[in-house]
Design a protein around this nucleic acid. Sequence first.
DNA 1: CGGCAAACCTGCGAGC
DNA 2: TGCTCGCAGGTTTGCC
Length: 273
Amino acid sequence: MPELPEVETVRRGLEPLITGATIERLTLRRKNLRVPFTPDFAKRVQGATISGIKRRAKYLLFELSHGEVILSHLGMSGRFIVWPDSLPQAAKHDHVIMHFTDGRALVYHDPRRFGLMVLRHEDELAHEPLLASLGPEPLEPGFTAAVLKATLGKKTAPIKQVLMDPQVVVGVGNIYASEALFLSAIHPQRTASSAAKHSESLVRSIRQVLTDAIASGGSSLRDFLQVSGEGGYFQHAFKVYGRAGKACVRCPGTIETVRLAGRSSFYCPKCQK
DNA sequence: CGGCAAACCTGCGAGC
DNA sequence: TGCTCGCAGGTTTGCC
């Protein structure tokens, strides 16, 4: 479900709630998500205190006091919910329940089960295959026009597809790829190499759309909710995503949709070239 | 290696 | 009301 702004919103929501919490026990309500749970997962986290939550790409990393790290991805439909106490009955698709010693619980809920949750020692993370081939973080200094230009120049696939490739830049999913291309006035079907000369604008647009979305608490489509249970607000700010047939906000054109690599893509044919 | 489709799942809204 | 169909924000895999 979520793209980078939603994952960052979850991280920011969880951080003050569960930093310092001690895990009394962990309940796995099935044996796998997208990947199997780590063997002895529950036993290995028992008694550990959560010392912090980091984010890399769309992964959340729960750092534990004894040097282990829970690596989690929300996939398309994953959510973390904090229960005020452990009393509520687990609902359908509540797959992991982390009971804290203070009586609260952190629940991972994921109907489509495209997400994952695995346990690693912090020393293993440098070689973790899930993280190994990730490209630069779009909001950090390593994501520069020069870096992007070099990558785009070599690729003949449509620019939108390439922007969604986590090896190129992480965190840009289907929604924000469309939005960033609109901001830069680039047609989504243009080849990446032909768009390479606009890398400076693209870097700016990607940063802007992600930053604005984070500031709005993420976007709420079907089922994204902040940890608080509130929806985000950024969906009200979409300029092209989901607006097929509506007026372009920048020119007299009408937003159209096209499928690229199986994903709906939205653009204005008049002002995106 | 690059590009593409399919795969993993369930839920929901649209349309009949 | 109830059915079927298509589509949904991600990532990996395997095929050509």
